[in-house]
Design a binder for these strands. Structure first.
Lengths: 199, 199
DNA sequence: TATGTTTCCTAACAGTGTTAGCAAATATAG
DNA sequence: CTATATTTGCTAACACTGTTAGGAAACATA
């Protein structure tokens, strides 16, 4: 008798409804605006029904995080398969990663836990120009020293910052999922490579 | 008459008390656990008093964010001033940045809006090994191709990811404080440099 | 001593995640 | 077809959250 199966189907329909509604909210107002009650209102069920499908609110957000990684994986595979030479593959994968992040900002934020209510970086960073020039100057020096004119120091400043921030935030988020020692080695390697590429 | 000045002093003492208490909470339980009521309880004042000193909760967190940037600036200047050669300066600045982040995780999280309740990256990333090997393989290929044996592909995998994530998250957080075009150029530059350093 | 200010609290508003307990609808067994 | 058991989905509450209106008490000034 297919009664149980129909019930199962209906139940999953509700779950799907929850996910869709929640996703619309996240897309429209950001992950901070997601609320169980608002979801319940939208799907026209009472609040506790949500908890029949998800253990808690975080579980819903985790769902999106997971989906994000799946989409990203797919995009990267797709990009890689378009090329044969590994150099091209790396470049294509990087582009795919970038495009994924730009096209799926909400996913990306959930995946990597980015974006607090308070902090727009520009508001928090005092004397932005001073900070910038501080880091920029030695970069500029190395470039000048090498006599090269095709290297943009402004570009390199951002590269520097990105490498630093990327490694650190992945370490902080990942909560030592990755070897402690390795992280410092990655930094040293990245900075060494960075300096090398300046001349 | 120093009455007004004493009052001013006392008022700033309370403000200082708020900051100190709030900071202890952030350090002990993370920025998500900070609550106006808990601060009020701790400083033995009623809730609205907090709002005589800060416009809202975010303003308190912003305070820490700002302080974080000040500490970071100081550390970077200090590191830079220890060396004369720009290459050494860059290396020292990178180390200082890294150490700052490790020693001040709470500050760093506030500064760059990292760390949501839900997402520990390891829980969200499905089939971690598959994802890893996907990116690792072309990196390995380039290294093999070059015939070099002194390059650790595992290291390079993390470097790749860091560069990607760093650039993207700064762009997302910074909310286009930085030129739109520039970001893609930085990525291209960083990836080109990355590939170059593999052989 | 009376007036005006500042300080500070109570209490509320409007929301949040989460759960206990109960009523109604449904499916199964006699 | 009725009686029992199960699932389903609700109301209402608990314990929080940020934020603010309004009033009472403490204070300094005239």
């Amino acid at each position: 008798m297919g009664i149980l199966e129909r019930r199962q189907r209906q139940k999953e329909e509700v779950k799907n409804d929850i996910i869709c509604t929640a996703w619309q909210m996240v897309k429209k107002e950001g992950w901070q605006a997601l609320s169980i009650r608002k979801i319940a209102d939208a799907i026209e069920y009472s609040v506790p029904v949500i908890y029949d499908h998800f253990e808690n609110k975080d579980a819903i957000l985790l769902e999106f995080s997971k989906k994000g990684f799946m989409i990203l994986s797919a995009k990267i595979i797709e990009a890689k398969d378009r090329y044969k030479e590994p150099e091209e593959q790396i470049k294509a994968m990087a582009d795919a990663y970038w495009n994924f992040a730009m096209d799926n900002k909400e996913h990306y934020q959930l995946m990597f836990g980015i974006g607090m209510p308070c902090c727009e970086i520009s508001k928090a960073m005092p004397e932005q120009e001073k900070f910038r020039s501080l880091v920029l100057q030695p970069i500029d020096d190395v470039i000048k020293k090498s006599g090269r004119t095709d290297i943009n120091s402004c570009l390199k400043y951002h590269t520097f910052w990105s490498v630093m921030h990327g490694l650190i935030s992945i370490k902080i988020i990942g909560n030592s999922a990755i070897d402690e020692e390795l992280n410092k080695m990655v930094l040293d390697d990245a900075i060494a490579g960075f300096i090398k590429n300046l001349s």
